[in-house]
Design a protein around this nucleic acid. Sequence first.
DNA 1: GTTCACACTC
Length: 592
Amino acid sequence: MTASLRSTACNPLTLLESSSTLREVHQIHCQLLVRGLLGDPPYLSKFVAILALSQNNPHHLPYSRLVLAHSPSPPTVFALNSLIRAHSNTSSDPLQAFHFYRQILHSPSLSPDNYTFTFLIRASSNLPTAAAAASAATHAAALTRGHELQDPDIVTKTAMVGAYAAAGEIDAARKLFDDIPHRDDIAWNAMIAGYSHVGRSKEALELFSSMQIVGVSVSEATIVSVLTACAQLGALDQGRWAHAYIQKNKFQLSVTLGTALIDMYSKCGNVGRAMEVFRSMPEKNVYTWSSAMSGLAMNGAGKQCLEIFDLMEKKELKPNEITFVSLLRGCSLTGLVDKGLEYFDSMKSKHGIEPWPEHYGCMVDMYGRAGRLEEALNFINNMPFKPHAGAWGALLNACRIHRNIELGELAQSKIMDIEVMNDGAYVLLSNIYAEFRNWKAVSTVREVMKGKGVRKEPGCSVIEVSGEVHEFLVGDKSHPMYCKIEAMVGEINGRLKVAGYEARTNEVFFDIEEEEKENAVSWHSEKLAIAYGLIVLNEGIPIRIVKNLRVCWDCHDATKFISKVFDREIVVRDRNRFHHFKDGLCSCKDYW
DNA sequence: GTTCACACTC
């Protein structure tokens, strides 16, 4: 042993930080007892804190609780704060944090401080339900105001902004944020992250530009949230800008930042660039690999997705559940059924990972898309737990693709047993009836929906033009350039007709309100967005659209024609994958 | 001490 190592070893607490087995911890604990160091409350607190926050072994946290419970001297706020922090970070039971909080409140000699509240708020935001988290956050806020903490510091307030956002109370978070007198960069980051997190991406980007106008410094965390927002919106221009910002300001390409970049490029349809980032990253973790795989899968590069996974195995990196969701989706979207089954079986046998309902859903989807409906049904019937709505949903979607009414009706009724208000299930079933031109059945489904108060989620498409995001809804007339857009849709329809395109109206009859039925085909939101793109984007610039729902057959056909007739590349990201349209063809090969 | 990354039948 070298001299420097020996001197480190002399400090038991330093040694404790790297201990990964309970045996080592026992030895250090004994040593401290023998040397009488634990009689000193600050020393004891430090011991408890290091142990509680150690990520080396899941048994360290319970052990730290025992140490504190059996100590002769009363706990300090520091020790209890550390336990609250430990339970707010990693514990699967954040409610435990409140147990230690009560201990502070009940002790006559202790009172909570700003640290206590910061960690408690963090614990609140990790509670399982949004309602619980919201009420806990409110509680913490009330306590903070009622307490001698008349003026909670900016750290506590920032944590509260994050807690409200995590609870889905984003407007309450914004109110808190606006009330912080001297907002620092971290407070701005928390608010931007909050918007990104709940999917209010446009507001995230708007707040980011205000942040720059005010002149607050931009950090890695800011850019990560901005990239997340760009990914959700499919805002490639702004995402590229953020990437350039990273390079110009010489930010280190950390694992988090690189992963966010991969995700952004993938979700903006530029998977080639995503893979360049992936290859250039000096350090990667399971998030990085999973993101790359998911990006390849959603862009239809199933083979490469599998290659990445094989490479990961070769490097003996441990995949997690999400890696397998990405992998199985890759297999599913490219029709690699047998390979998919092999991977699915290897989850348990080779990697010791118990499949989630989502993995079963992917398998059902995989068999179903391939037209192997009986096997898909078998897979559902042999699930080790009660099939969730998603498994039946995958089957129902397969029944739509492969036109199977009987099985479709079964799947739909199973979904109704689980989720009465599942609008997607009604729409899929009615689309199956429509394929068979059974309008009576279509209108029955419609009546049932009406009777139960189920509404179809409205279609919405967004397009980014020179860094600005434009949103279109079905039949939306609110855009300032609506007149020109309307004229362009007319031109599109005219030129498509000449080119031999015929509208398929089967599916759309159900999609919109009765009175709009006539024009429905022309007015699906992506058509408005494409028309707008044709008006404002110069020739040769691809039109990129992001849609919240699945593309309907008609729009898919029409977009193929548009790509040929207008000689324009069109990239559409629908609810779960990309369609790259060029010269009258689509990258999905009509398989989605 | 506070802010940041992967998926999900649709």
